[in-house]
Structures are given as C-alpha cells and as structure tokens.
C-alpha cells in the first residue's frame, strides 16, 4: 500500500488529513512533530508528505528543506496557517514543492491533488 506522511501540530487538522488520506486508500502515518518520526519512517518512500511549516525550534523554510533532505518522498504538499503570498513564494523557491495550501483550506482540492498524482 502506498504511504503518506502527515505532519501537523494542530491535532484537528492532523486527524482530518489522516482520515482524508486513509479514505483515499493510502497507508497514513500521522505525526505532530518530526520528533515522532522513527528510523523506519525515514527509510520508507512516501508517495506524499503533507506538512505544516510552523514547528518549534526550526525556521519554516529550514523545516521544509530538512524534510526534503531526510525523508524520501515523491510529492510534498504544504498545508499551513502561515499562508501569505510572500511565504508561498519563498517555499516554492526551495523547489520540488507539489502544492501550497493556506488555511482556510478546501479539503477537496487536496483530495483532488492526491488523486491526480497517485
């Protein structure tokens, strides 16, 4: 089964995204911070990573760069509260970002993206 990693500090968004991914027939690993990532996870190749950018102790851009570097994946979707155009441009400047969704989000759009890429 293809795998998706969801990283969101907000428990409610985390659960909703986990559910969205699961009903779309993916195996989902949902965590609230990178600390919860196991060595096994770091070795599995995720079809999607859906992540926030606001986490303790790491700058948003650096976080995305770190995720890109340490977790093998095919697509990276950013879902965040800090969704200003300026941030969006900076995130896309990091390259290889599949999508950027600013809160409030239309979950159907994320679902469509997952279905389109998978």
């Amino acid at each position: 089964m293809r795998k998706v990693l969801v990283i969101q500090e907000d428990l409610i968004i985390l659960k909703i995204l986990e559910r969205l991914v699961t009903v779309n027939h993916f195996d989902c690993k949902a965590i609230r911070s990178l600390d919860a990532l196991t060595i096994e996870d770091q070795q599995s190749d995720f079809e999607f990573i859906i992540t926030d950018i606001l986490f303790e102790g790491i700058a948003p851009l650096e976080f995305v760069a770190q995720v890109q570097e340490i977790i093998p994946h095919k697509n990276l979707l950013v879902v965040t509260n800090m969704g200003q155009d300026k941030i969006k441009k900076e995130i896309f400047a990091l390259k290889d970002i599949t999508g950027f969704y600013a809160v409030p989000i239309d979950l159907d759009e994320i679902e469509a993206t997952i279905q389109a890429y998978s």
Binding site: D10, I12, I13, I16, V103, P104, I105, D106, L107, D108, E109
Partner: peptide
Amino acid sequence: RLMIRTQRTILGENY
C-alpha cells in the same frame, strides 16, 4: 473554541 478553530480552517463543501 474547538468548533470555531475547525470551522475557520476549512472552506468549500466541508465547511
């Protein structure tokens, strides 16, 4: 508070 937080997060049909 949780209800508001959730409602503010979502748009579209799910809203």
